Amino acid sequence: GLEHMADEEKLPPGWEKRMSRSSGRVYYFNHITNASQWERPSG
């Protein structure tokens, strides 16, 4: 619920959580730099 939404908002600017269609794993994508990574971004 609300706790999940608050957790999402802690991601650094530009980052969003996405799911890989090929593997079904969650990864993180930065739409500003077009960077993507499996680890949760910090800072």
Rank of each mutant, 00 (worst) to 15 (best):
G24H: 07
M19N: 06
N34A: 06
E16F: 05
G1N: 13
W38E: 05
S22K: 15
S36Y: 14
L2A: 13
W15R: 01
E39H: 11
F29H: 06
E39K: 06
P13Q: 06
R21P: 15
F29L: 03
W15Y: 02
G1P: 12
P12L: 03
P13T: 07
Y28S: 00
A35K: 15
G14N: 06
M5H: 12
R40V: 07
I32H: 10
W38H: 04
L11N: 01
K17T: 06
R40N: 06
E39W: 09
E16V: 11
Y27F: 11
E16L: 06
E9P: 08
W15T: 01
D7A: 10
G14V: 01
W38R: 05
K10L: 14
P13C: 15
K10F: 10
H4F: 12
G43A: 13
S22P: 12
L2D: 14
D7Y: 07
E8Q: 10
S36P: 02
H4A: 12
P12Q: 02
K10I: 13
G24R: 08
I32Q: 08
K10C: 15
W38Q: 03
H4S: 11
R25S: 04
R21L: 15
P41Y: 01
G14I: 01
R25F: 04
R40Y: 08
D7F: 07
E3R: 08
H31R: 14
S42N: 12
R21H: 13
H31D: 03
P12V: 01
E39N: 08
K17G: 02
W38P: 04
A35R: 15
A6S: 13
F29D: 00
G43E: 13
G43V: 12
P41M: 01
L11C: 03
S36K: 13
S23T: 14
S22L: 12
R40E: 04
M19Q: 09
A35E: 14
E8S: 10
R21M: 15
K17E: 06
N30L: 02
R25I: 05
E9Q: 08
S42F: 10
H4R: 08
R21K: 14
P12I: 01
W15K: 01
P41C: 01
K10S: 14
S42M: 10
W38F: 08
G43W: 15
H4D: 14
I32Y: 10
G24L: 06
R40T: 07
K17L: 09
G24C: 13
I32S: 06
H31T: 15
N30W: 01
S42T: 15
T33E: 04
R25H: 05
T33Y: 05
H4N: 11
E9I: 07
L11V: 06
M5S: 12
N34Y: 09
R21V: 14
Y27V: 02
I32E: 08
K10V: 12
H31W: 15
S22E: 09
I32D: 06
G43D: 12
S22C: 15
N34K: 15
E9M: 08
M5L: 11
G1H: 11
E3L: 09
P13R: 07
S42I: 11
F29R: 03
P41K: 02
E16H: 08
A35I: 15
R40W: 07
P41G: 02
N34C: 15
S23A: 08
R21D: 11
H4P: 14
S23R: 06
Y28A: 00
E39I: 07
W15I: 00
E3V: 13
E8R: 07
E39L: 07
S22G: 11
L2H: 14
I32W: 07
E8W: 03
G43H: 10
G1E: 13
W38Y: 09
L2S: 14
N34H: 15
A35H: 15
Q37T: 05
N34R: 14
M19F: 15
R21F: 11
E8G: 09
E3P: 13
N34W: 08
P12N: 01
G24Y: 04
G24M: 05
E8A: 10
I32P: 02
K17S: 05
N30R: 01
V26I: 11
K17M: 12
P13E: 09
S23L: 10
T33A: 03
E9W: 07
G1W: 11
L11P: 15
I32F: 13
R18G: 02
P12A: 03
P41Q: 00
S42Q: 13
S42D: 10
F29T: 02
K10H: 11
R18S: 03
S36N: 04
M19P: 02
P13F: 13
M19C: 15
K10N: 14
L11S: 01
G43Y: 11
H31V: 15
P13A: 10
M5R: 08
P13V: 08
W38M: 05
P41D: 01
S23H: 09
S23N: 11
H31E: 06
P13S: 07
T33R: 03
N30S: 05
M5Y: 11
M5A: 12
N30Q: 02
K10T: 13
W38L: 07
E16A: 05
L2R: 11
I32N: 08
K17F: 04
M19K: 12
P12D: 02
E8M: 07
L11E: 14
R25V: 05
P41R: 01
G14H: 08
Q37F: 03
S22T: 14
G1R: 13
V26A: 07
R25D: 03
K10W: 14
M5E: 13
G14Y: 06
K17N: 02
E16W: 04
T33Q: 03
L11M: 05
K17V: 09
L2E: 11
K10R: 12
R25Y: 04
H31I: 15
N34F: 10
S36V: 15
G24I: 03
G1K: 12
R25G: 03
M5Q: 12
P13H: 09
A6G: 09
Y27R: 01
I32G: 04
E9V: 06
D7H: 09
